[in-house]
C-alpha cells in the first residue's frame, strides 16, 4: 500500500482551522464548566433542599448518558422547543454541560476534604460564609484535585470529536470533509490522529505545569 499525503496537505488550512476550533471550544467549555461546577458543588452542600436535589439529578443525568446523545438532544431538541441554535453553539453548550457535571463531582469531593478548622478560622475572623468559601476554601480545594480535573478535561477534549456528528466544524469534521474530497481516508486519519495526540499531550502538560503557577504554595511542598 502506498501512502500519499499530497492531497491531505492541500487541505492543511482546513485541518488547522478545525484544530483551532476544537481547542477553543473545549477550553471555553472547560472554563465555563469549571465555574458552573464550583457553583454546583457548593450548591450541593449548602443550597436549599430542592435545589440540591435538582443539581444532583442534573449531575447524575449527564454522567449516565452518552455525550453524543446529549449533543443530539441539544442540537435537535432545542429547535423543536423554539430555540434556534447553530451546530457550533450547540457543541459548545453540550461540552460545557458535560464537563461541568464531571467537574462538579471532582470539586465536591475536594470541598469535602476541607478541614473544619479552615471554616472556623474564617468565621472567627468575621468573614461571612461566602467570603470563607471564595477566599479560604476554594483555592486549596481546587489545588488538591487539579490533576484529576486535568485528566477529566483531556477525556472531554478527545470525546469532543463527537461534535462533528452535528457538523460542528472541528478537527474531526475537517478530516471527514477532506476524506470525502480526496478518498484518502487512511492518510487523513493518520494526520488527524497525530494532531489529536499532539494537542492532547500539549494541553495536558500545559495545564499541569500551570498548576504550579496557580497554586504557588504547593511548590516545594510536593
Amino acid at each position: 500500500m502506498e501512502l500519499n499525503f499530497d492531497d491531505v496537505t492541500r487541505y492543511g488550512a482546513l485541518l488547522i482551522e478545525g484544530s483551532i476550533f476544537t481547542v477553543v471550544v473545549c477550553v471555553a467549555a472547560g472554563l465555563v464548566g469549571l465555574c458552573l461546577a464550583i457553583l454546583f458543588a457548593e450548591g450541593q452542600r449548602r443550597a436549599a433542599r430542592a435545589l440540591r436535589i435538582l443539581i444532583r439529578a442534573y449531575v447524575e443525568f449527564i454522567r449516565n448518558t452518552p455525550f453524543i446523545v446529549q449533543l443530539f438532544f441539544i442540537f435537535f431538541g432545542l429547535p423543536s422547543a423554539g430555540v434556534k441554535i447553530d451546530a457550533n453553539t450547540a457543541a459548545f453548550l453540550a461540552l460545557t454541560l458535560n464537563v461541568s457535571a464531571y467537574f462538579t463531582e471532582i470539586v465536591r469531593g475536594a470541598l469535602e476534604t476541607t478541614p473544619k478548622g479552615q471554616y472556623e478560622a474564617g468565621a472567627a475572623l468575621g468573614l461571612r460564609p461566602r467570603q470563607v468559601f471564595f477566599h479560604v476554601v476554594l483555592r486549596p480545594a481546587l489545588a488538591k484535585v487539579w490533576p484529576a480535573l486535568v485528566s477529566q478535561f483531556t477525556l472531554v477534549f478527545l470525546g469532543s470529536a463527537a461534535m462533528s456528528q452535528i457538523s460542528a466544524e472541528d478537527l474531526t469534521f475537517a478530516g471527514q470533509f477532506i476524506q470525502s474530497r480526496t478518498f484518502r481516508a487512511f492518510e487523513v486519519y493518520i494526520v488527524v490522529t497525530l494532531i489529536y495526540a499532539g494537542l492532547a499531550l500539549a494541553i495536558r502538560s500545559l495545564l499541569l505545569l500551570s498548576g504550579g503557577r496557580l497554586f504557588p504554595w504547593l511548590r516545594g511542598a510536593r
Binding site: 478548622g117 472556623e120 478560622a121 474564617g122 472567627a124 479560604v136 486549596p140 504554595w217
Partner: peptide, 12 residues
C-alpha cells in the same frame, strides 16, 4: 479574636 490548637492558618 480566636487562636486554635492547630493554628488553622490558610495554607494558600
Amino acid at each position: 479574636g480566636m487562636v486554635f490548637q492547630h493554628f488553622n492558618l490558610f495554607p494558600h
